[in-house]
Design a protein around this nucleic acid. Structure first.
Lengths: 214, 214
DNA sequence: CTGGATCCCTCACGATACTG
DNA sequence: CAGTATCGTGAGGGATCCAG
């Protein structure tokens, strides 16, 4: 790869594209930013990826020090893939691209799915640290069958898959989620027409929406 | 493209990759971030790009509102390509990827070239606004036959191709440039062994190096 | 000269079947 | 579960040709 599909430029940006610019590579990184995953987890999170391509990308990124294999504890055993520190450094770039793309999402197409990892990254990348100064909020979010949570504290966010039993708020939503973050729909409207359902303080959705922005 | 090579996910990041994730697309954006360019300028700045690929990417990005064609004034005439505001919004992502890749540049390979646009982007993306607070420096940089300049002021940078006649400093350098920004070589060393040649105040290179970091 | 269009060839990718 | 094997397709690489 290094010499095959290189760009022929001694340039940091070109080098980045050579290392993670091939098809599916950054999608794999996106999912691994959420946490270590097994081969089959990645397959599930990236519907449509051919197994040989997944194998090839993992091998390449292992060789270039972006991904590493780690043994999984018993039971289950086997191996999982996780980002190295150098791979984790891609987070800023993934978030920047994610923010840019989120503005251009439009409405979901018929064949488009939503995954839990994409929502975790969406929360992290649209998070507004300045708006979160001094605020504290823990939320469990449900998007159809998908459950994730976020904890906002001291201007930082931790977002991860799964429920959060003692969350301040439980927000159940769906297609209204993007318009809410893009300020194309107000929390009031969303709650009124039932595209967002809230459990917790009445103004929690307003607070939530202030913390994120597309 | 929209349905052919889509990732099948309703996700901002996936959408970004669908729009600018194909080969050469972001390299074109990188060069256009430096300024509008003609077809042949892009060819020169991206040695190795096939003309049909350049044509295809420009058409795709024009259709998706990232690039626009503008008529060029007489003489010369013809058209040039420039980024739309939405395309310019990719700057943050390009810089983030550039910073990540710059750490992994290593030494130049035999077949790797340096272009003026890549250097402009390198200066912009490695610029450290915090270290530049209250500082002011204008510099003309020469890298072999390539000439570019940067003006640092109020914690911001403006970098562009071409000379800067009344620059505070003129720095002529080459392969030592990356090690300097990566703190693998001190200004003193670079000046001593002649891999950096300076015209201007003696400590100018120290000042310069403080403003950028790989 | 700029700004492409067209051709052919190769290989990366996509889809699916199969195996340790 | 975690890949390998196989094969067809189409995007990219490279050269050449054409129009304004």
């Amino acid at each position: 790869m290094v010499s095959k599909r290189a760009y022929g430029q001694y340039c940091g940006f070109a080098r980045a594209l050579e290392l993670v610019g091939e098809r599916w590579a950054l999608m794999i990184v996106r999912d691994l930013l959420v946490g270590p995953k097994r081969f089959s987890d990645l397959q599930r999170g990236l519907p449509g990826i051919p197994t040989n391509v997944l194998t090839a990308r993992l091998k390449e990124m292992e060789q270039t020090g972006i991904v590493e294999r780690v043994a999984q504890p018993r039971p289950a055993g086997g191996v999982a893939y996780q980002l190295t520190p150098g791979g984790t450094d891609l987070e800023a770039a993934v978030h920047a691209l994610g923010r840019w793309g989120a503005k251009r999402l439009g409405d979901p197409r018929a064949d488009e799915r939503v995954t839990v990892d994409s929502l975790v990254i969406a929360l992290r990348s649209t998070f507004q640290p300045k708006a979160a100064k001094g605020k504290h909020l823990s939320i469990e979010m449900r998007f159809g069958p998908i459950v994730l949570h976020a904890i906002v504290k001291n201007g930082t966010i931790e977002a991860a898959p799964g429920p959060l039993p003692d969350a301040d708020v439980v927000l159940q939503t769906g297609p209204a989620f993007r318009p809410l973050l893009a300020r194309e729909m107000t929390p009031r409207e969303a709650l009124k027409n039932g595209t967002a359902i809230l459990r917790g303080p009445k103004n929690a959705l307003d607070q939530f929406v202030e913390l994120f922005r597309i």
